[in-house]
């Protein structure tokens, strides 16, 4: 297990390094460099940067150096000072922009993921055990609706229902009266309440997919001889269900960790726009459209790193949960 972990981490570090190089080249891709953009911006404002100023800036970002030195300066800034560069669009350091949106996004995506797990776990098991029953058909129907209706449509519908029938304002982080308020129990409750609907909307699509996967996997496991064998030794139905087949069918749940983390950043752009949620998705979109390369590149880098981390976490979790993965990771080769 330790060997496996070390090997897995080693590979992921290599992957992250390669990703950072790709991101660096994406940032460098548009014509002109960082300083020339600054000069152009200053001219627009009617100012003029002195030659000395320009030289200082060029030196600061190592623009007079070859590309690998520039890469090194860039990545060193990120590693040591968490300095992702400067966003021209926002006229602020990219780090500030990211940090403004990231925490809430993680909160929302994490909430959506947990919601997804709970719903999919319960309904997945139910539909697999009671296959072809009325309940199965009902949830299957519901699942397919969740799968096929675009999330932003759901968001609109939810907004309408919430407003028309419950008088709730869906959208944004807080209800109007709490936006400027100090932190208090009531404000936290309001935040949770406002989070619940978007989390539910984002969770729907993932839930529907996961229910189908769980149902299919568990259906396969339920007829395995080891289930019959457990029954034959006199184990109770509920205990043996959760202990044996469900345990074996859990792997897709663990795998979702891998792809849930990247969706934290990039996912749900439209839903966030519709619900005017301050998540990173719309910011990334804006950065890409405006060629705000440092911000976009930073997002891409964070996205890539999170994807790798997510995969590593789900791999390690899988190995921890499944002895077949844990104890067999050597293969025959020529």
């Amino acid at each position: 297990m330790l060997q496996y972990t070390i090997r897995r981490l080693g590979w992921s570090l290599l992957t992250i390094w390669l990703i950072s190089i790709v991101c660096f080249f994406i940032i460098q891709a548009p014509p002109g460099d960082f300083v020339s953009v600054l000069i152009a911006q200053a001219e627009e404002d009617g100012r003029r940067l002195s030659a000395a100023q320009i030289d200082v800036l060029r030196e600061r970002y190592a623009l007079d150096q070859p590309w690998y030195a520039q890469y090194f300066t860039w990545i060193w800034g990120i590693l040591t000072e968490f300095d992702f560069g400067y966003s021209f669009r926002w006229n602020r350091p990219a780090t500030d922009v990211i940090m403004e949106y990231l925490p809430f996004t993680i909160l929302l995506a994490g909430g959506a993921m947990i919601l997804t797990w709970f719903i999919a776990f319960a309904i997945g098991i139910y539909t697999a055990v009671k296959r072809y029953s009325a309940g199965d058909y009902f949830f299957t129907f519901l699942g397919f609706i969740g799968l096929s209706v675009p999330n932003f449509v759901l968001a609109l519908v939810f907004m309408y229902i919430a407003f028309a029938f419950f008088g709730m304002t869906v959208g944004g982080l807080f209800s109007p009266e709490y936006v400027e308020a100090d932190w208090s129990v009531a404000r936290v409750l309001d935040l949770v309440q406002n989070l619940a609907v978007p989390a539910l909307i984002i969770a729907t699509a993932g839930t529907a997919g996961l229910i189908r996967i769980t149902r299919a996997n568990l259906s396969d496991e339920l007829v395995q001889p080891y289930v019959v064998a457990a029954r034959a030794r006199g184990q109770r139905e509920n205990v043996l269900l959760l202990r044996y087949p469900v345990r074996a069918a859990m792997n897709p749940f663990i795998s979702t960790v891998g792809y849930a983390i990247p969706s934290v950043i990039s996912g749900e752009v439209i839903v966030s726009s519709v619900l005017s949620l301050p998540t990173t998705g719309p910011v990334l979109l804006g950065a890409l459209r405006n060629q705000d390369m440092y911000l976009a590149g930073s997002f891409l880098l964070i996205l890539g790193v999170l994807t790798v981390i997510g995969t590593v976490i789900s791999d390690l979790l899988l190995a921890w949960a499944d002895p077949r993965v844990r104890r067999q990771h050597s293969g025959a080769t020529e």
């Binding site: 395995q224 001889p225 080891y226 019959v228 064998a229 202990r243 044996y244 345990r247």
Partner: peptide, 15 residues
């Protein structure tokens, strides 16, 4: 008590 044809599949691989 009962024993089965395929001992490989009659024991849970997770335990």
């Amino acid at each position: 008590g009962m024993i089965f044809q395929e001992p490989a599949r009659s024991l849970s691989p997770m335990h």
